[in-house]
Computed example of a mutant assay.
Amino acid sequence: MIDIDGVYNSQNDRIWAVNRSEVDIKGGIQQKRKFTQKVMIWLVVCSKGVSPLVIFENGTVDHDRYIKEVLPFALKFDNKMFGNNWTFQQDGAMPHNHAKSQEWCGKNFPSFIDKDHWPPNSHDLNPLDHCIWNELAQAVKWNAVTSKETLIMAVKRAAKKISKDILLESCLSWTNRLYRLSQHKGDYLG
Results as ranks from 00 to 15, higher is better:
87 T>R: 11
46 C>E: 05
59 G>T: 06
137 A>T: 05
8 Y>M: 06
23 V>N: 02
35 F>K: 12
84 N>F: 03
58 N>L: 01
155 V>M: 10
146 T>V: 10
3 D>L: 03
134 N>G: 15
134 N>T: 04
94 M>S: 13
174 W>R: 11
80 K>R: 11
106 G>W: 02
105 C>W: 00
64 D>H: 07
56 F>R: 00
52 P>H: 14
136 L>Q: 10
190 G>T: 01
141 K>P: 01
41 I>D: 01
162 I>P: 08
13 D>T: 14
40 M>N: 14
36 T>H: 12
83 G>K: 10
48 K>V: 05
155 V>I: 15
187 D>H: 08
161 K>G: 05
4 I>H: 07
38 K>E: 13
134 N>R: 12
137 A>H: 05
59 G>P: 11
119 P>R: 02
188 Y>V: 05
135 E>Q: 14
85 N>E: 14
157 R>T: 11
45 V>H: 02
57 E>T: 12
45 V>T: 15
118 W>A: 02
159 A>T: 05
175 T>W: 01
2 I>D: 01
77 F>D: 11
84 N>T: 07
49 G>L: 06
65 R>V: 07
80 K>G: 06
153 M>N: 09
136 L>A: 09
91 D>W: 05
156 K>Y: 07
100 K>Q: 13
71 L>I: 08
24 D>L: 15
72 P>Y: 00
120 P>R: 15
168 L>I: 04
90 Q>D: 14
104 W>G: 10
59 G>W: 13
31 Q>V: 09
141 K>A: 08
40 M>E: 07
118 W>T: 09
118 W>D: 05
130 H>L: 00
27 G>M: 13
82 F>P: 03
23 V>Q: 10
138 Q>K: 15
150 T>D: 03
59 G>S: 08
163 S>I: 04
17 A>E: 08
144 A>M: 09
137 A>M: 06
3 D>K: 09
116 D>N: 13
15 I>R: 04
156 K>D: 02
79 N>A: 03
96 H>A: 02
134 N>L: 06
35 F>P: 01
86 W>T: 02
22 E>C: 08
113 I>C: 08
181 L>C: 15
164 K>I: 15
139 A>I: 01
61 V>R: 04
100 K>P: 01
